[in-house]
């Protein structure tokens, strides 16, 4: 595959097997800055594996992933970790907030890990919490807030480092319709305002409807629906 010009993150001919199970079998992907791409497909189709490979969490058996012109395979573990900390943001379905920390401490955590002072980190965290409409929860612990509120806190945390790519794996999977849609509205508004690319793994059509286009993964193979037509 030739990635479209100006792509921020691309993957070509990705293969990944877990023992005898083939998770990815020649998958392709590309995304531009500021674009929201939904990765859809049934359970077990390989969509989460694709996200984990793109994010540098899982190393593919073969194929290439290029981020901002750099081949990921040429980076060592430390470089990939640094990339994940500073350039990538993550939102998952469950259990991402540290229960012992307050919400503002949770949101500030990535900045603290990158060496920011507590005051500066929490100030930036509060700005994001305001945008996600959860600043009133700053002193509460994750156990004291609702699922929808907790997910908004998690989205604030994923965006606090101003990532260039946000990876969201079923970000609304544990929420009811109303809270799920609100999280998607806030997440995509925030990402678009910072020109971040969003890789959105979801099996829900109403969530995918917040994307600009979708990739369908089936049996480890990807299909870019925009280029099919």
């Amino acid at each position: 595959m030739t990635a479209p010009a100006g792509s921020l993150l691309t993957a070509d001919a990705l293969r990944k097997a877990y023992g005898p199970t083939v998770a990815l079998d020649g998958a392709e992907f590309s995304i531009h800055a500021g674009e929201v791409v939904a990765v859809m497909g049934p359970s077990g189709s390989g969509k989460s594996t694709l996200l984990h490979c793109l994010a540098g969490i899982v190393t593919p058996d073969s194929g290439s992933i290029t981020y901002n012109g750099r081949e990921m395979a040429t980076m060592n573990d430390a470089q990939r970790s640094a990339l994940r900390r500073s350039e990538f943001g993550f939102v998952f379905q469950f259990g991402q907030l540290v229960p012992e920390l307050t919400c503002v401490e949770n949101v500030a955590l990535p900045l603290r890990l990158n060496g920011a002072s507590r005051k500066a980190a929490e100030q930036a965290a509060l700005t994001w919490m305001e945008r996600l409409e959860v600043d009133d929860l700053r002193k509460k612990r994750p156990g004291e807030v609702s699922g929808g509120q907790g997910q908004r806190v998690a989205v604030a945390r994923s965006l606090v480092t101003d990532p260039r790519v946000l990876f969201a794996d079923e970000p609304t999977g544990a929420l009811d319709s109303y809270n799920g849609e609100r999280v998607m509205e806030l997440l995509t508004d925030a990402a678009r305002s910072t020109n971040a690319a969003v890789v959105l793994v979801t099996h829900e059509a109403r969530v995918a409807a917040y994307s600009d286009r979708e990739i369908v993964v089936r049996d480890g193979k990807s299909r870019d629906m925009e280029r099919v037509v």
């Binding site: 859809m40 409807a209 917040y210 979708e214 629906m225």
Partner: peptide, 16 residues
């Protein structure tokens, strides 16, 4: 089915 999904999603994006 993939094409139908894409067509549905196209309309769903407009509605969203």
């Amino acid at each position: 089915l993939d094409n139908q999904r894409a067509e549905h999603l196209r309309l769903m994006r407009i509605l969203t």
